[in-house]
Design a protein around this nucleic acid. Structure first.
Length: 389
RNA sequence: CGGGGUAUGGCGCAGUUGGCUAGCGCGCCACGUUUGGGACGUGGAGGCCGCUGGUUCGAGUCCAGCUACCCCGACCA
């Protein structure tokens, strides 16, 4: 792409109402725009990064047998009433609205209910299991307070996967596969070294759930990490009993702030039972489908990458999530020979299928072009100027 | 929702005890000189001073109400 055609501009100063490092840099670089508290738009550069992240996640989900779907944002109250999650006293983050035709709808804050209801149309026998569905879908959560730039917003994209298994053993096996896939995703996004699989509060069906927590001062959570074992414990379940269970010693753990970028959770039959998702086993008996759910917020992941890998005035995108593969910076483009050389290079790389951003802007000083390039953060850079001749 | 703070061209800011034409930097437009680390000169454009009401001869400035945004907390399947 020609940079002269890119409608977004870089800024020297961030708006003063953004304090978080991720939003300041992303706004200055022209990746995102703030619409209101907790709502951000993704602009061309930001959308490219977001889609790179989404594609990494998609690849890893497909790798373990996931099938991508896309459910609706508008939710039918009746199915949520069946699981007792429609009442504002039970789930306090609903955005709800009225239908002109009469009745209410909600904006989805998660998708267990509609996913289960949909699958009732397709799962009847043990031969139909397991099924692993996932989607990238907007979630709406009426948080009392949005904060930390794109880290905690009221509207955000989530990758949510749901597993449907015959029994607990199959769920346990798949659960571990997801954990491995998550580890790969975070490594590919360049934050693997600082991301810990973290023991967090479970539910009635498992002692723990697991969160993937990335160590960062910008995080909201407090965790205790064990570098030797490469695991961590969330503050919410940090006690002697848990330490004992995990064979960890207090003195070996380090207390840190962290960003929750993913979580995995065993749901058992909590939803299948309430909504009637059963299958017939090989003995002809009806059983509840055993479920798990697995979330990652690609937007928050993008923010986390910025928090971890950027410096003042400079974002450093890992190769796999960079908005472009190569940034060609043309200097002294009033010189015909230089321009010709830069254009040839641009064409050569583009013809090879390399995604190039070519800074072809005229009358812009070298310093400004370099500063812009630093902010945009493409890891590979080719500089073409008079010296290149 | 409790506490604290902010609101003045696109962005960052100044504006004194109320005073007449609201300034500065960046950015933007035109022309010229520049182009290996946010260049320079000259000339321009751009403002319901968050909103509503009040006090006053006169309000960006004082008063009241409201709204938005930020931070801390509570909250966060």
């Amino acid at each position: 792409m020609l940079q002269s055609q890119l409608f977004t501009k870089t800024k020297k100063d961030a708006p003063k109402d953004e304090v978080s490092n991720n939003a300041q840099l992303l706004i200055r670089g022209g990746f995102i725009n703030k619409e209101m508290a907790g709502v951000y738009s993704y602009l061309p550069l930001g959308l490219k990064v977001l889609n790179k992240i989404i594609n990494i996640i998609r690849q890893e989900m497909n790798e373990i047998g996931g099938q991508e779907v896309l459910l609706g944002s508008l939710q039918d109250p009746t199915i949520w009433q069946k699981t007792d999650r429609w009442d504002d006293k039970k789930v306090g983050i609903w955005f709800k609205s009225k239908l002109n035709a009469g009745g209410e709808v909600g904006l989805a804050n998660t998708h267990e209910e509609p996913m289960v209801v949909m699958l009732k149309q397709h799962i009847n026998s043990y031969k139909d299991l397991p099924v692993y569905t996932y989607q990238f879908q907007n979630k709406f959560r009426n948080e009392l307070r949005a904060k930390s730039g794109i880290m905690r917003t009221r509207e955000f994209i989530m990758k949510d996967m749901y597993s449907f298994s015959k029994n607990q053993e199959d769920l346990d096996t798949f659960y571990e596969q997801v954990a491995v896939a998550y580890t790969k995703i975070f490594e590919r996004c360049g934050i693997g070294a600082k991301t810990y699989k973290t023991f967090a509060s479970g539910g009635i069906f498992s002692k723990f759930s697991h969160e993937f927590q990335t160590v960062s001062a910008a995080g909201e959570d407090t965790i205790y990490i064990s570098k030797e074992k490469n695991i961590a414990i969330n503050d919410e379940v940090y006690n002697d009993q848990v330490l004992n269970d995990l064979r960890l010693k207090k003195e070996d753990l380090e207390k840190v702030k962290a960003i929750e970028i993913g979580n995995i959770f065993k749901l058992g039959n909590r939803f299948s039972s309430a909504l009637g998702l059963q299958y017939t086993d090989d003995k002809g008996e009806r059983n509840d489908v055993i479920m798990g759910c697995y979330g990652i917020g690609p937007g928050r992941l993008m923010g986390t990458i910025v928090e971890l890998l950027s410096q003042e005035n400079k974002i450093n995108w890992p190769k796999e999530v960079s908005p472009f593969d190569v940034h060609i910076i043309g200097l002294s483009l009033d010189n015909e020979e230089v321009t010709k050389l830069a254009q040839e290079k641009y064409k050569e790389l583009t013809d090879k299928g390399i995604d190039v951003l070519f800074d072809d802007r005229l009358n812009i000083s070298a310093g400004q072009k370099f500063a812009d390039a630093d902010l945009i953060g493409i890891p590979e850079r080719i500089i073409i100027g008079k010296e290149s001749l």
